[in-house]
């Protein structure tokens, strides 16, 4: 159904999707308002379907929907506030308002997770790391090494365990604890040994040569990207004002009231549907040019 990889943000500087997704996540987290959350959730879901495909989104929802339900059902048990009594569960009273609050919080969590998952597809690790400010150029290097280390350690630990289990002539297998100590100390020695060679490789190429470092940026900020960034900043500012208005008028307790006018929620809808809209437009244009 959907392509494996999103294309809308391929051709722009990484700061553009970074700003857009950061804004979407921040507003989803801060605007605790059922309509805002619903809009954000639908927008995130749509983008996830487009960018990650139906199968991956469904696999995610398989744990996200139960989470939403759980938060929704647990909230009334912890906060017995509200005015519309639905039923009593032992000593606890379950109110409609606290159920609604729980559903909103659950939806908020799922929306944030979905936004992060979508952003991770667009902003691959190297694009994200290249965004580090100029003064902190060693940070991406350090993080890049750390990110490489984890899969390498996992791969090696599989090798170590596979080798041990293949050597049946060595007698009984060590216990779980002993095997764990053995594997971890082996991995530690192995990595330390390798780090010496890596340090040599760094010094051989002028690391710590005392010169101010420059940086190779694989992407350049073009006027088009700057314009897009300004547009996103303006939209985010408008959304913040509107979300503030909508949320300050809204009350869950004691009774649900204070729905803001539709125009107050419209900018939030624009923000939520912008990523999927951009993706759809990019795909249609691509198809037209083929």
């Amino acid at each position: 159904m959907a392509a494996k990889r999103p294309i809308a943000f391929d051709a722009c500087h990484a700061t553009v999707p970074a700003a857009l997704f950061a804004g979407a996540v921040a507003l989803s987290m801060l605007a605790v308002h059922p309509v805002c959350v619903a809009v954000s959730l639908v927008g995130a879901l749509l983008f996830s379907l487009l960018a990650r495909g139906g199968a991956a989104t469904a696999r995610g929802l398989a744990w996200q929907l139960p989470l939403l339900t759980l938060v929704c059902l647990l909230n009334p048990l912890f906060s017995a506030s509200g005015s519309t009594l639905l039923f009593k569960l032992g000593p606890r009273s379950v109110y409609l308002e606290s159920l609604a609050y729980g559903a909103t919080m659950g939806g908020l969590m799922v929306a944030v997770v979905l936004w992060f998952e979508g952003a991770a597809v667009v902003l691959t690790q190297d694009r994200l790391l290249a965004l580090a400010p100029r003064r902190a150029r060693t940070l991406p290097l350090l993080l890049g090494m750390a990110f490489q280390l984890v899969p390498q350690l996992l791969g090696r630990s599989r090798k170590v365990r596979a080798t041990l289990s293949a050597c049946t002539a060595a007698g009984a297998r060590p216990g779980v604890r002993e095997a764990l100590t053995r594997t971890s100390s082996m991995l530690l020695t192995w990595s330390l040994e390798e780090s010496i060679e890596r340090a040599d490789s760094m010094r051989a190429r002028g690391w710590e040569s005392g010169l101010p470092r420059t940086s190779y940026r694989p992407e350049r900020l073009r006027p088009r990207d700057a314009a897009a960034l300004c547009g996103i900043a303006a939209l985010l500012a408008l959304c913040s004002v509107c979300a503030w208005e909508a949320c300050s008028a809204w009350r869950f307790y004691p009774t649900i009231r204070g729905l803001a006018p539709w125009w107050c929620l419209a900018p939030l809808a624009v923000l939520a549907f912008l990523p999927s809209g951009a993706e759809l437009v990019a795909r249609l244009r691509e198809r037209g040019r083929r």
Binding site: Q125, G144, M145, Q148, R205, E208, T214, Y216
Partner: peptide, 16 residues
């Protein structure tokens, strides 16, 4: 190998 991407590995020494 020091960096996580090919382009960064190639540029590493020049950056230094």
């Amino acid at each position: 190998m020091v960096c996580d991407t090919v382009w960064h590995e190639m540029a590493f020494g020049l950056e230094n």
